[in-house]
Design a protein around this nucleic acid. Structure first.
Lengths: 145, 145
DNA sequence: TTGATTTTTGGAATCATTCCAATTATTTTG
DNA sequence: CAAAATAATTGGAATGATTCCAAAAATCAA
């Protein structure tokens, strides 16, 4: 509901670096994402954001998310053509999409591993970003994001 | 424009196995995909299909593509929330998305490699399908798909 | 403060895709 | 083969996530 000082600092700095202002709404949307580390859609963020900022609009949520993404603070996760999801986990990682519950889980990937994937590329291809996602079922869908 | 006998056989068999009929339109859409091995969107398939079957409708193209995908003959490729693309390359492979031209290229992946990726999954996660895509630029965007 | 620039906002617009009900094609059965 | 049953095609309407827009509000710069 409220940004911790270091988070606030990260936000301010990233926004400034991107030439954007820190606004109440951007702070709030960022805090919503940090607060519950799952992978909410814009609409879910909207619902959560409104619980403590009832006047915020959906358009603003979209705007804020886009700003946060382009400032490099948040990652936009697209799974099959479902609504985009947003996650504040910036560490390079893969995703697991539970085909039953629809939920998305972060999968840690050794830092050098992704780099290794680059070897697959023929000469002339320069990837600046790799996306790796698994689709299947979880034993029980036990954890919480 | 016309299915080769082996392709026709593959199609018939896969459709029958899936409990679906072989129709003129399904054959045609399949042939359109085989004819030019790029990664067309439904709309592009529609345009190509119409050039030799002017009466086919967009809804039918969507239906046929969905049928072919579920029959396991065609792979649906989703890149960032762009319109779905379709590719008849069934071999396990990755994709490279050229951020400049928007084009998608197939990237071959050693057959055992994908299996190796499974090791990244914690216990309890069972992936039945892995998606790997690279996003970046190509040296010159020289090839043709 | 004044003006200039950004943001926010609600609603309209967009666009890929799906849905629908009617027609047409294909298969099955008698 | 004809008739009935089933499935596929079609055009247009509906959907739903996202973007666009123009006006109002907030923030910053001078």
């Amino acid at each position: 509901m409220k940004l911790t000082p270091p988070a606030k600092h990260t936000l301010d700095e990233a926004l400034t670096r991107a030439g954007q202002r820190t606004t109440r709404q951007r702070e709030h949307v960022f805090s919503v994402l940090l607060d519950k580390r799952d992978h909410p859609t814009a609409d879910e963020v909207y619902v959560r954001a409104r619980s403590t900022m009832p006047a915020i609009s959906l358009a603003t949520v979209y705007n804020c998310l886009e700003t946060l993404v382009s400032a490099g603070l948040v990652r936009q996760v697209n799974i099959e053509r479902e609504p985009s999801r947003y996650c504040p986990n910036l560490q390079e990682h893969a995703h697991f999409h539970d085909q039953v519950s629809g939920r998305v889980f972060d999968i840690e990937v050794p830092s050098d591993f992704m780099a290794g994937l680059m070897q697959l590329l023929p000469a002339g291809y320069e990837a600046e970003h790799i996306e790796l996602s698994f689709h299947g079922k979880t034993a029980a869908t036990k954890s919480k994001n």
